[in-house]
Structure formats: structure tokens, C-alpha cells
């Protein structure tokens, strides 16, 4: 079983549209994992049924029992996160600021503080419209995206892929270079970086590739909107060459991607003749990626 992780550094480069197309092409041989738990969009193209849903708890959050509190203020003193303000004469926990370190509870002289399990979201196991299995999640509002929910989604997808003898886990990652991205990269067999031919696309892919390099992972790159700026495209290609990153494909600037999305479809599902070119590039890309993971 191989794990293919799609990331981009910069947001909005077409990561999810492309991942959904691969999910369509590899349908019965894939378990899909949407690891962009912060702004998950893949479900809009794959229509999962949310058949199994479970709360996800990660870390703790402090809770002050006002009946026991003697208002000594020690908790607020030791808190490094400004999470215990005084409101109407009472020491209360600001849940958005609390990191759940538990320091306040440990030093409270009257044991007025307890740590409650922190519900940070929900995760789901679904069957998609393609009859494939998809694991996905929804991070709670204001919850910390520590990477633990990402790890949960990924590990469940892996477990299911092994059990049902699928060849691939396909992971849609999140933008950036922080915890959630690190978490989605760990254990990857092959990383697909989707970038675009813009100065920011280039800048951001270089940064995220530094991270990929730290993990010693094999990577390939799809240049989206390559014809928007041929100079930047050339620069991206020389970077790929210098770093030994496989150049998987160039995709032209084409609003058919958006039109397909509005219809809730992946680009490979659309029938219009005009899209044949995009379609065949994506099919070739998927075949190439499969070969590279072998």
C-alpha cells in the first residue's frame, strides 16, 4: 500500500480539484483522506455519505469551579497564554486562549481547577459517490489544528486501505508549512506538489519543498496555470531540475475547472469536448504518479 500526499504551500493552486480527479480515476483502488481539516472542501466533489461519525478529543482545557475559588490569582499568574482574565471579579478561562497545559490546575491551592477533555472536532468514515472509502474531518470552530486530527484521519485511511487491500491512500493536504502539513507528510511514499506559475506559487513551493526535503521524501510537481506566466514556469522547471523533483505535468489556465466545481464535478467527469485536453493531462499525471510510487 502506497501513500500519495498532495500539498501546495500556497492555497488555491488547485490542490483539491486535482486530488478529486485522481480519486475519480483511481476509484476502486483508493482510500481518500481529506487532511485539510481546517477548510475541508473535497467532500463537495466526492459526495461522501458521512455514514460513521465520531467526536475527536485532543488535549485538555481548564475549568475553574467558582464555588471553590478563593480568588488568589495564582492561576492567572502562571498562565503564559493570557487565558485566565478577570471578568466581573471572577477568574475565568478564555477557551480560545487556553492551551491545555494544566499548569494552573497543578498550582491551585484549593484544587478549584479541573482539566476537561477538549473536543476539537469530528471525523467521518464515508462511502463516496464513486463507491470508494473516504476518511475526512471537521475541525471545531476555533480549535487548535495541532496535527492530531490530521494524523487520526490519515491513520484511519491507512488502516482501512490495509484491511480492504487497496493499493493507495490518497491524501489532500492543507496549505502552509506548519503542524498540519508536517502531520500529513509523515510516512508518505510520494508527495505531489501542486503549484501555479505565479511569483507566490514559486516562492511558496520552494518553502514547502524545504520541509519535504527534511523528511527525505520523493516528490513530483504539477504546474497549474503554467501559461499564465511562462517566465515563472521556466523558473519553476529549473528549480525542479536542480532539486531532482519529477516534473509531472503542466496544466493550462482554464476556467473549466471552476465550471466543473460549480456542478459538483471533477474535471475528469465532465463530458464537454473542450476539456479533453485537461482530462488527458490529468489521466497521464495519475498514471505517472502510480508508476513513480512503484
Amino acid at each position: 500500500m502506497k501513500e500519495i500526499v498532495v500539498i501546495s504551500g500556497k492555497g488555491g493552486t488547485g490542490k483539491t480539484s486535482i486530488t478529486a480527479s485522481f480519486a475519480y480515476l483511481g476509484a476502486d483502488n483508493i482510500v481518500v483522506a481529506d487532511c485539510d481539516v481546517d477548510a475541508a472542501d473535497l467532500h463537495m466533489l466526492l459526495e461522501p455519505d458521512f455514514a460513521k461519525s465520531e467526536d475527536f478529543y485532543s488535549g485538555e482545557i481548564a475549568d475553574i469551579n467558582q464555588d471553590l475559588c478563593i480568588k488568589c490569582g495564582e492561576c492567572a499568574n502562571v498562565c503564559r497564554f493570557n487565558a485566565i482574565p478577570i471578568i466581573d471579579g471572577q477568574f475565568v478561562v478564555n477557551q480560545l486562549n487556553c492551551e491545555g497545559c494544566g499548569y494552573c490546575a497543578r498550582i491551585c491551592p484549593v484544587n478549584a481547577i479541573t482539566n476537561l477533555d477538549n473536543n476539537v472536532g469530528k471525523w467521518f468514515i464515508s462511502t463516496t459517490k464513486l463507491n470508494s472509502i473516504m476518511v475526512h474531518a471537521r475541525l471545531g470552530i476555533g480549535a487548535e489544528n495541532s496535527g492530531k486530527l490530521v494524523a487520526k484521519v490519515k491513520n484511519e485511511a491507512k488502516r482501512i486501505a490495509l484491511e480492504t487491500k487497496k493499493d493507495f491512500v490518497l491524501v489532500d493536504g492543507s496549505p502552509g508549512i506548519g503542524c498540519p502539513v508536517v502531520s500529513s507528510l509523515s510516512g508518505a511514499s510520494f508527495v505531489v506538489i501542486v503549484t501555479e506559475a505565479t511569483v507566490s506559487g514559486l516562492h511558496d513551493m520552494k518553502r514547502v519543498y524545504e520541509l519535504v526535503k527534511k523528511f527525505n521524501l520523493k516528490a513530483g510537481c504539477i504546474i497549474n496555470k503554467y501559461d499564465l506566466n511562462l517566465d515563472v514556469s521556466t523558473e519553476i522547471k529549473s528549480f525542479l531540475k536542480a532539486e531532482n523533483i519529477i516534473h509531472i505535468a503542466n496544466l493550462p489556465y482554464d476556467e473549466s475547472f471552476t465550471r466543473a466545481m460549480v456542478e459538483g464535478k471533477t474535471i475528469v467527469e465532465t463530458k464537454k469536448d473542450k476539456n479533453n485536453n485537461l482530462k488527458s493531462i490529468i489521466i497521464d499525471s495519475w498514471n505517472k504518479i502510480k508508476e513513480e510510487t512503484n
Binding site: G11, D38, A39, L139, G142, A143, E144, N145, P175, G176
Partner: peptide, 10 residues
């Protein structure tokens, strides 16, 4: 600001 809806955005 950064993208998303979690801690960095907040």
C-alpha cells in the same frame, strides 16, 4: 492573515 479557520487566523 493566514488562510483557514483555526488558531493562526484567530
Amino acid at each position: 492573515s493566514p488562510p483557514g479557520t483555526s488558531c493562526p487566523v484567530i
